[in-house]
Computed example of a mutant assay.
Amino acid sequence: MSDDDDTTPSAHHYGITVSDLDESLAFYRDVLGLDVISEFSVGGEAFAEGVGVDGASAEFAHLDAGGTRVELVSYDPEGADRRGGMVNDTGAIHLGLSVPDVEAFHESLSDDVETVADGPRTTASGTTILFVRDPDGTPVEILEA
């Protein structure tokens, strides 16, 4: 495939399945500061067939992460609970968000926001990182490149 080929994919969104859309939306909007683009529901036979889940319907929230769209989705019926994974687990996902000052971001967090370490760390590559967990335990990397 070449860059001018109509079949070459381009990024549209990064999706995260959540157990409680309202709780997760509050975290991504209020704690991480992402702007809500839209909220909507989808159901019906074509949707269920498209996602491969019998009788599926879902509620969605799209958020703007500085030009990257983050999609939060809550399914009915719910699938298996895969919380508590580590970033080095095969198939693990995480969302990476850049901030100008990770230390200031860390200091702004309320005590109920779970962090992986007790504060930011600067890696050998010179990148300062801090991993937080959303309400379902999904890791979100906050970084200062």
Rank of each mutant, 00 (worst) to 15 (best):
D54L: 11
V70D: 02
G44Y: 03
R82D: 08
E49H: 07
L25I: 04
D20G: 04
E141A: 12
P135D: 09
T122L: 05
H94N: 11
H94I: 09
D134R: 09
V102Y: 14
I16R: 00
Y14P: 01
D5I: 05
E23P: 01
I16C: 00
G137E: 11
G119T: 11
P120H: 14
D112T: 06
S110W: 04
G43F: 03
E45V: 04
F60N: 00
V51H: 07
D5K: 03
L95Q: 13
G126E: 02
G50T: 06
G33C: 13
F105E: 08
D118E: 15
E39Q: 13
V113F: 05
R29C: 02
L95K: 14
L130C: 15
N88K: 10
S2N: 08
G91T: 11
R82S: 06
H12D: 13
A124H: 01
G96C: 13
G91N: 10
E23L: 06
F27G: 04
A65V: 00
D111P: 02
L143V: 01
L95S: 14
G52P: 12
A46N: 05
L63W: 01
G43D: 07
L95T: 15
I129K: 12
Y14V: 09
L130F: 15
V102C: 15
D81K: 05
T8S: 07
V113I: 07
G44I: 04
T127A: 13
E71V: 08
E45Q: 05
E59D: 10
L34W: 09
P100D: 12
I142F: 09
I37D: 10
G66F: 00
I16E: 00
G50S: 14
A92Y: 13
S41G: 12
D6H: 06
V102L: 15
R69P: 01
T8V: 10
P135R: 12
V102T: 15
I93L: 10
T8P: 02
F40T: 03
G67D: 01
S38A: 14
P9G: 10
L143R: 01
G85C: 06
F131M: 14
A65N: 00
V42H: 06
L63S: 01
D64G: 04
